[in-house]
Each structure stands twice: as C-alpha cells, then as structure tokens.
Computed example of a mutant assay.
Amino acid sequence: GKSRSLGDRIPVRQGMSGHDVKVLQDFLSRVGQKVKVDGEFGAGTTTAVKTFEKTNALDVDGLVDANDIAVLRGQAEAGRDAPEAEAPLALAPGDKAKVGPDGLAIAPENAPAEVKAILAAGNAIAKKPYIYGGGHGRWEDRGYDCSGSVSYTLYKAGLIEQSMASGGYMGSWPKSGTGAGKWVSIYANEGHMYMVVAGIRYDTSAFKSEGSRWSASMRPTKGYVVTHPNGL
C-alpha cells in the first residue's frame, strides 16, 4: 500500500510514490529545500535530495537511505517552532565542531548522522530561555532547563524516548555506555548536567553567560558522572 512511514522502504528513490515520499518532501521543505509536497518522487525531489546530501556531507546519489533520513528527520523536527534551525546545518571539515559567531554549532563533516542531529537540535533551542522544568512536560517548550535541554537533543536524534532529570543520567540509562564517548559525553550530578558534542560544550550555564547553550570553553568535570550514547 501507499500509506507507509518514512523509513519503511529503504532507499526511497525517484519513481516511488506514497505517504513516505510526502513525509520526505515535507521534511525537505522544512529544512529549506524547494520541493513540491505531492507524494510523487520526481526529478524535482531528486534535485532537492541531492542538494540536501551535498549540504550535509552525505553520499550525493539522490537515494534516500537510513543515514539520510536520520539527518533529515533531526533537522526537520528540530526546526519545528524554531526559525533559527531552518537553515541547513553548517559544516566544518574534520572531526571537531565549532561555535559560529551567531552562537550556533557548526557540525564536523565526519560526524555520524546522530551527532549531526544532536547539533541541529541543539541549535534549535540554543537561545531559548532557561525555565526550570522546561522540556519535561513537552518536547516543544518555551524554554528548557539543563536536563530538558540535553534530553531534547537526544530525543531528536532518536537516542531516547522520554526526557530525564539530571539524576537519571548518572547511572545506566537506555542505550548508554559508561565513561566519555568518542563524539558525545554527558556529565551529570544531582544538581546539574551538560554535554560535550564533538569538542564543544552544550550547557545552560553557557547560555547565562554567552547567550547560547553552545560554548567552545570547557568546565571542571569533578563531581560529575560521565556517560555517553552507545556507539558515540
């Protein structure tokens, strides 16, 4: 049948039609690609897919595979109710992220799709106000506290299903590993938490001093339990 979720058919390619194609086109339009949302994967959709792939350092083949979907979904959903995330995620060569002059993360080209999705989601709420309890009752909120901010990015990257308070990240949480990760390290204690993604810090305390949750500076890690998402 034609009523499929995006990801049910891999790859999604030119000549296909159906609900999953329509969702794909909607996501592409949300991240700034000009595409007709009609459920028909034609030449125009192929062009939009290739442009998106090139912008995000993905294989430029016009075939929408699982990796493409993960990056696209992260950016499209992060951009909902967050105009600053509608621009494509900026990329920098290599393995290290940077903080741009606008206070938003610039993703490393070599990062896995989930890391790029975390960075895109972090950009979406980087400048939203600190609100205690924010991000725990609903994902799209007026503001976010420290654990709500981190949970939001992990959820948008498909790594968790519900938000957790900082204490929840101190032990073994779903799909987690102990110690620092190669790409993502989450630091938590009973009173505060933050994370380091591809070498830059994502922290509500940075927002208070710098106007963005992203910061190129680190902070002392003593007193924090460090974990990471499995494989990252």
Results as ranks from 00 to 15, higher is better:
Ile200Val: 11
Lys175Asp: 10
Asp38Val: 02
Leu63His: 14
Ala70Cys: 02
Ala97Val: 14
Arg4Gln: 13
Asp95Gly: 00
Val37Asn: 13
Lys54Glu: 13
Gly122Cys: 00
Ser209Cys: 01
Leu58Val: 02
Pro101Asp: 15
Gly1Tyr: 11
Arg73Leu: 11
Ser3Lys: 12
Leu58Met: 08
Gly135Ile: 10
Pro83Asn: 08
Gly32Asn: 11
Gly1Asp: 08
Val99Gln: 13
Thr45His: 06
Gln25Thr: 06
Val196Pro: 00
Lys36Ser: 12
Thr153His: 14
Ser185His: 08
Ile106Pro: 04
Pro101Phe: 09
His228Glu: 07
Ala121Thr: 02
Ala107Cys: 07
Gly122Ala: 03
Trp214Ala: 07
Gly39Ala: 03
Ser166Pro: 03
Val150Gly: 05
Thr221Ile: 08
Thr51Phe: 02
Gly167Trp: 11
Lys2Asn: 14
Ala120Ile: 04
Arg30Tyr: 13
Ala188Gly: 09
Asn230Asp: 15
Tyr155Cys: 00
Leu232Val: 08
Val23Trp: 15
Pro11Ala: 08
Ala90Glu: 03
Gly42Met: 02
Asn123Lys: 06
Ser176Gly: 05
Pro93Ala: 09
Gly100Asp: 01
Gly7Thr: 11
Ala117Asn: 10
Gly39Met: 04
Pro93Thr: 06
Arg13Phe: 00
Ala188Trp: 15
Gly39Ile: 03
Ala111Ile: 08
Asp95Lys: 11
Thr153Gln: 15
Phe52Pro: 04
Asn67Cys: 14
Phe52His: 10
Lys96Asp: 09
Tyr152Leu: 08
Lys54Ile: 03
Pro93Cys: 06
Pro112Ser: 09
Lys175Met: 09
Ala121Lys: 00
Val12Gln: 08
Glu84Ser: 07
Ser17Asn: 05
Pro88Lys: 07
Asn123Gln: 05
Pro11Leu: 10
Ile186His: 06
Gly44Pro: 01
